Simulated scan of single mutants.
Amino acid sequence: MKGELGDLAAFVAVARARGFRDGARVTGVSASGLSEAVRRLEARLGVRLLHRTTRSVVLTEAGKRLLERLGPALAEMEAALDVANGFRDRPAGVLRLNVPVSAARLVLPAIVPGFLAAYPDIRLEVIAEESFVDVLAAGCDAGIRYDERLEQDMIAVPIGPRIQRFATAAAPAYLDRRGRPAHPRDLLGHACLRGRFPSGAMMSWEFEREGEVVRVDPTGPLLVQIGGATDLLVDAAVAGSGIVTLFEEWLRPHLDSGALEPVLEPWWLRFPGPFLYYPGRRLVPAPLRAFIDFIKASAAPPMSGRGLEDDR
């Protein structure tokens, strides 16, 4: 039984990492050891689970179905074993978080160094992506999302700033050349630098002032996928290519330096900050419990209003 569980864990590690070498880095087991474990599992089941090439590893249909069922099951087993971790003087183990790129850039830098210093026996792994995934199936303990993206059966804990704004800005030279918008609808006559989510949905340009909400769908010379290419929007705006809308904290260094000038600031949309979320139907691993306690202890008093839940 122990050997079978080890082979199953090896398969999950390789499938999630999409390769034997990356799986080896995550697990600490050699690539050849993982390969042999997967071969034993395939021989035992009588089906191929992975298509192997010299450049990649791809799940077969049988492999996909097995991974879908194994991911949550192994997570539950890890959580059950982790109960003993709570009896240690200091929690230890791995904490895996799935977060959007904006959270990795704007929220976690103020939290992670202090957390790592407080819990030196915990190793934190952060996967930053814009796709909305099942955190358990992805092998993660928790994620960070905004309230409109949270699933109903998730427990949500406030993390990071409780109020954020989308800021709109452009280089002063661009505004001198093309004029300064006085109303959000004026953006329809400007070169706007847009972002699109991996799902294909366009990033919304929404504005609000004294109860009036205005949504516009401008066009422009640059469209990037939100995530790793987001900084290209900012660089293009600083270079004078057009107007950009993004998290205020992302643009703040350029606003403070004067490289970007605020546009339509009285209309900037305010919205509730993000949440750390995790499944409420499973035991909470000790590293995650330590992280939750840490962000609660260091957080400002939470904002009142919709979308707030506690892990009661």
Score class of each variant (00 low, 15 high):
residue 66 L to K: 10
residue 180 R to L: 15
residue 66 L to D: 09
residue 281 R to T: 11
residue 172 P to T: 00
residue 90 R to C: 04
residue 181 P to A: 02
residue 128 A to P: 05
residue 312 R to A: 03
residue 238 V to Y: 05
residue 147 D to S: 15
residue 307 G to S: 05
residue 248 E to I: 02
residue 287 P to L: 03
residue 227 G to D: 12
residue 311 D to H: 12
residue 204 S to R: 14
residue 199 S to F: 02
residue 213 V to M: 06
residue 173 A to Y: 00
residue 175 L to E: 09
residue 182 A to H: 04
residue 285 P to E: 03
residue 103 A to K: 02
residue 292 I to W: 09
residue 42 E to I: 02
residue 39 R to Q: 15
residue 285 P to M: 02
residue 82 D to P: 11
residue 111 I to G: 00
residue 182 A to S: 14
residue 217 D to Q: 08
residue 130 E to M: 08
residue 12 V to Y: 14
residue 62 A to I: 01
residue 145 R to L: 12
residue 158 P to T: 03
residue 214 V to L: 10
residue 250 W to G: 01
residue 301 P to Q: 03
residue 214 V to D: 03
residue 87 F to W: 13
residue 185 R to M: 12
residue 213 V to H: 06
residue 104 A to G: 10
residue 249 E to K: 09
residue 289 R to T: 07
residue 272 P to K: 10
residue 140 C to V: 06
residue 178 R to S: 07
residue 9 A to P: 02
residue 62 A to Y: 06
residue 111 I to F: 07
residue 175 L to G: 10
residue 1 M to G: 14
residue 188 L to A: 00
residue 185 R to W: 07
residue 84 A to K: 12
residue 10 A to V: 07
residue 159 I to N: 07
residue 191 A to I: 01
residue 11 F to I: 04
residue 58 V to Q: 15
residue 76 E to V: 11
residue 223 L to G: 00
residue 216 V to L: 02
residue 292 I to R: 05
residue 48 R to G: 14
residue 93 G to E: 02
residue 153 D to Y: 01
residue 3 G to H: 11
residue 190 H to G: 06
residue 13 A to W: 01
residue 154 M to T: 01
residue 152 Q to M: 06
residue 263 V to I: 06
residue 81 L to V: 09
residue 106 L to M: 08
residue 181 P to H: 03
residue 306 R to E: 15
residue 247 F to T: 02
residue 269 L to R: 15
residue 240 G to V: 11
residue 63 G to P: 10
residue 104 A to H: 03
residue 3 G to W: 08
residue 140 C to W: 06
residue 217 D to E: 13
residue 109 P to H: 01
residue 131 S to E: 15
residue 196 R to Y: 01
residue 188 L to Q: 05
residue 37 A to C: 08
residue 203 M to H: 14
residue 88 R to E: 09
residue 45 L to D: 06
residue 16 R to T: 04
residue 258 G to Y: 12
residue 242 G to F: 12
residue 277 Y to H: 12
residue 55 R to C: 00
residue 309 E to A: 15
residue 24 A to V: 06
residue 16 R to C: 05
residue 192 C to R: 12
residue 263 V to D: 03
residue 3 G to Q: 13
residue 290 A to R: 04
residue 218 P to R: 12
residue 69 R to G: 10
residue 280 G to W: 08
residue 261 E to G: 04
residue 144 I to S: 01
residue 78 E to Y: 13
residue 113 P to S: 09
residue 46 G to Y: 10
residue 109 P to M: 00
residue 10 A to T: 07
residue 21 R to D: 02
residue 106 L to W: 11
residue 262 P to Y: 10
residue 171 A to E: 01
residue 202 M to C: 00
residue 142 A to F: 00
residue 138 A to V: 00
residue 237 A to Y: 06
residue 1 M to N: 14
